[in-house]
């Protein structure tokens, strides 16, 4: 009995001193929360940019797919979009981040959060575009014909009939993409950014006690992702309840 107690006390002693060392001493917890703030900022602006790019690219590609008459302008923009998709999806996001930071913004030093948001947004846009396009294509062509036969123009038909149905179909894939994006921002440390992962790594380099800070960062990512998943599930349920 006494032996057990000593072991437990000893264990607790080690844990509490580890917590003190890694999180409380010198306000080291601030590394994690500053990092969390940066991670959220990058992810938020990257998601926004990704959606904007995704909408534009998916619109061009779907319009190209759905129309028999393709003017030279449409063909031109479609080939630009296809090139964008090929390059972005065909190369690693880390490489894209490094190129955007060290090459494209080499001479003009803008805010690093902005740089990273642009890099991750451009990357995510390619995936979001294909998700949007698959959603539009998933809607039965008869819906499109019904809208057009009533006298709605192409844009109206998209807006009233195709996109609401497409959006519902793509929600799971879109949620997935946002989850991936949040976690992908963990490579921002490569361009010297102090994001959540980097924050944990800084603590590790000061305390030489790697597990607690890395575990803490992991838990924080997990909470973010679980929260986002719950939000998406809620949205999905609400949209499904509108029609059976």
């Amino acid at each position: 009995m006494v032996v057990y107690c000593t072991v437990l006390l000893d264990y607790w002693d080690r844990i509490s001193s580890s917590i003190y060392l890694n999180f409380i001493k010198d306000d080291r917890w601030k590394y994690l929360f500053t990092g969390l703030g940066i991670t959220l900022q990058i992810a938020f602006f990257a998601v926004l940019l990704g959606i904007v790019i995704g909408i534009v690219v998916a619109s061009v590609r779907s319009t190209y797919d759905l129309n028999d008459k393709r003017g030279p302008l449409l063909r031109f923009f479609n080939s630009i979009c296809k090139t964008y998709l090929t390059v972005i999806r065909g190369t690693p996001v880390l490489l894209q981040l490094l190129i955007i930071y060290f090459v494209i913004f080499a001479s003009v030093r803008i805010d690093k959060v902005l740089t990273a948001s642009i890099a991750f947004g451009i990357n995510s846009g390619a995936y979001v575009a294909e998700i949007f396009r698959s959603g539009i294509l998933s809607v039965d062509r008869g819906q499109f014909e019904a809208g057009r036969s009533l006298g709605f123009n192409y844009v109206q038909t998209m807006w009233y009939f195709i996109l609401p149905q497409a959006f519902k179909n793509i929600l799971p894939a879109l949620g997935n993409e946002f989850i991936v994006l949040i976690k992908e921002t963990s490579i921002a440390g490569y361009i010297g950014m102090h994001d959540l992962t980097k924050g944990a790594d800084i603590i590790r380099s000061q305390t030489y006690d790697p597990f607690p800070p890395l575990l803490a960062a992991g838990l924080m990512y997990l909470i973010l992702v679980v929260g986002l998943t719950a939000a998406f599930n809620h949205l999905e349920r609400r949209l499904r309840s509108n029609d059976r």
């Binding site: 008869g142 019904a146 029609d243």
Partner: peptide, 12 residues
Amino acid sequence: GMVFQHFNLFPH
């Protein structure tokens, strides 16, 4: 007015 084989009502 047009009526289709598969109705094509707007399900949402």
